[in-house]
């Protein structure tokens, strides 16, 4: 029996309308929880990227100037895009282990839990976008029709992040230090993603190795549509799309295969 068959056999087919209601209720719960714990609410989620913006801007325009045009907008795009990716995966480690009662609830579609995590962080990303647009206007960037490609980039990043979230959530059920290892890995990946520098500065002989990181093309794609006002380079993004689709298939497969044992391991 393959993992996917098992997933289908495991529970009665969920009604799509009910899955949608569940997603909404659980995302709303996560949002309420995060804002209730802090006095400043939404501002709090903005504080973190803004502080990061301030510090990186200080370092790379005054201490070690990189001379990138429209640097604040350039930087903030990178911070928000990578931030969504990073926090989603970080919180995905708890998607199963922190929702033990839900996993044990008859009829509950367990595969939606990582979707809830990535979606909640998508909402934080979207809430920060107005600030990014203010920065763009402040920098004197003129928005073009290319900005309409933004939803496509978001959908692509969502798929890629979700596929990894499935793997991370599964792994954390078995090895409870996944979160710490992941923190280190994501920290390292931050430097290998063009967040505060321009990817074209990578020496040609390392370019192909560097390009194995799909976030390289995603971050650059956002900058193309927002700052440069042009459509992103289609070739690499098509490759990322294929990779994301394959990864999602693998991620869901691994997750479903393992999920039959979640109840016993929690």
């Amino acid at each position: 029996m393959t993992g996917l068959d098992a997933a289908l056999l495991r529970r009665r087919p969920a009604n799509p309308a009910h899955v949608w209601d569940l997603l909404r209720a659980l995302i709303a719960r996560d949002m309420k929880l995060r804002y209730k714990r802090s006095v400043m609410g939404v501002a709090w989620t903005l504080l973190n990227p803004l502080a990061e913006l301030l510090i990186l801007f200080f370092i790379f325009s005054l201490v070690l100037p990189l001379n990138i045009p429209d640097y604040p907008a350039f930087l903030f795009t990178g911070i928000l895009v990578y931030g969504w990716f990073q926090t989603s995966l970080f919180f995905a480690t708890g998607a199963i282990v922190l929702n033990r009662e839900l996993v044990r609830q008859p009829g509950f579609p367990v595969p939606i839990l990582p979707v809830v995590t990535v979606s909640t962080n998508l909402i934080h990303f979207l809430l920060a976008l107005p600030v990014l647009f203010l920065l763009l206007i402040y920098s004197g960037v003129t928005l073009t029709w290319a900005v309409l490609a933004l939803p496509v980039l978001i959908a692509l990043q969502f798929t890629l992040t979700l596929s990894l979230a499935y793997l991370v959530a599964t792994f954390h059920v078995r090895f409870r230090d996944t979160q710490y290892l992941l923190r280190v890995l994501l920290q390292l990946l931050f430097y290998l993603t063009p967040v505060f520098y321009d990817g074209s500065a990578i020496p040609a002989r390392y370019q192909s190795l560097y390009n194995l990181n799909p976030m390289v093309f995603l971050v650059d794609g956002y900058r193309a549509v927002l700052i440069r006002g042009e459509l992103p380079n289609a070739g690499p993004l098509a490759a990322v799309s294929v990779a994301a689709a394959v990864l999602l298939y693998v991620g869901v497969g691994v997750f479903s295969r393992a999920s039959a044992r979640f109840v016993d391991e929690l």
Partner: peptide, 16 residues
Amino acid sequence: KIGALLELGAGFHGDL
């Protein structure tokens, strides 16, 4: 349709 009184309060959170 299954109803369950197995894990009472599944999805409950103290801060809400």
